[in-house]
């Protein structure tokens, strides 16, 4: 599988590094613009008004989300091209199982998503310090200092975020593959997006229902299980499903449902790639 990861990385690298550079360039331009426009609100060039910080965070959020969406659209279209374009003649003739192909695509997409997110966030935090003279790292550090068992929380957060991304990507791959198997026309095959929206909505509904019916949570900061009463005291939304909540807890049934989804979507898609996809 890692042999194919190597070529998937090579094939996507140029576009995605370009996208990262573009996002960093846009961040720099926007921060310089804000600094110039808001120059008179700076006190001694060392502190920044809170509304400017809020605006900066908003802009950073837009750049981050925009870049991640752009990257995912590109990576998803790379999967779709395997099923609809001539390159599929090479990919599907390689001695690779459907699972290996799918696993490679998934790993590369998760890798780029993580790299892109980290690079853009860290670059912008440094940039705020350099351009605005405001140290976000101090704020982050003061929050971190208050957290017990940071290791658990950090590991748990990374795992749950990756799981959430994996579920979304696998649902997209599943929807594209089902569309390809059942509809031969490329144009009508674009309806995979509709199928994805329906699947994602149904799954979110089920996940929330499960969380509501079985209110059992895992507190990542203590790795302890908490029930409905403690959850209520902590202010956890009873509809809350498998992902990490702001309080650092995950719904245990929601998490199990998410694991089942990952396994199910992966094997169903891999099976279709092996046994059902016709490269025509």
């Amino acid at each position: 599988m890692f042999k194919y990861v190597k070529y998937e990385m090579k094939g996507t690298m140029k576009f995605l590094i370009g996208a990262i550079i573009l996002a960093l360039g846009a961040s720099t331009g926007i921060q310089l613009f804000i600094k110039r426009e808001a120059g008179n609100t700076l006190v001694g060039g060392m502190t920044v008004e809170s509304d400017i910080i809020a605006f900066l965070l908003l802009v950073l959020g837009f750049i981050l989300i925009g870049s991640l969406i752009g990257a995912m659209v590109y990576l998803i279209s790379s999967y779709r091209k395997e099923l609809y374009e001539d390159r599929g003649y090479l990919t599907f003739a390689l001695p690779l199982s459907g699972g290996q192909l799918l696993g490679s695509k998934l790993l590369v997409a998760l890798f780029w998503g993580t790299v892109m997110g980290l690079v853009i966030v860290i670059y912008n935090l440094i940039l705020v310090q350099v351009i605005m003279g405001y140290n976000f790292f101090d704020d982050i550090w003061s929050i971190i200092k208050q957290i017990d068992n940071l290791g658990f929380l950090l590991t748990g957060s990374i795992i749950t975020s990756l799981m959430e991304s994996a579920v979304t990507l696998l649902l997209v791959y599943f929807a594209i593959t089902v569309s390809r198997v059942s509809i031969k026309s490329r144009k009508i095959g674009s309806l995979w997006f509709l199928l994805f929206i329906i699947l994602a909505s149904v799954i979110t509904y089920i996940q929330e229902l499960i969380a509501k019916l079985m209110p059992m949570y895992l507190d990542l900061s203590t790795m302890g299980i908490i029930g409905q009463r403690e959850a209520y005291i902590m202010g956890i939304d009873s509809q809350f499903g498998g992902t990490l909540s702001i309080q650092g807890v995950v719904s245990i049934p929601g998490l199990l449902f998410q694991i089942l989804l990952i396994v199910g979507a992966f094997f169903a898609t891999a099976y279709m790639l092996d046994k059902k996809i016709d490269i025509v």
Partner: peptide
């Protein structure tokens, strides 16, 4: 194959 399938 009857066409070029190498990645562009």
């Amino acid at each position: 194959p009857d066409r070029n399938a190498l990645y562009s």
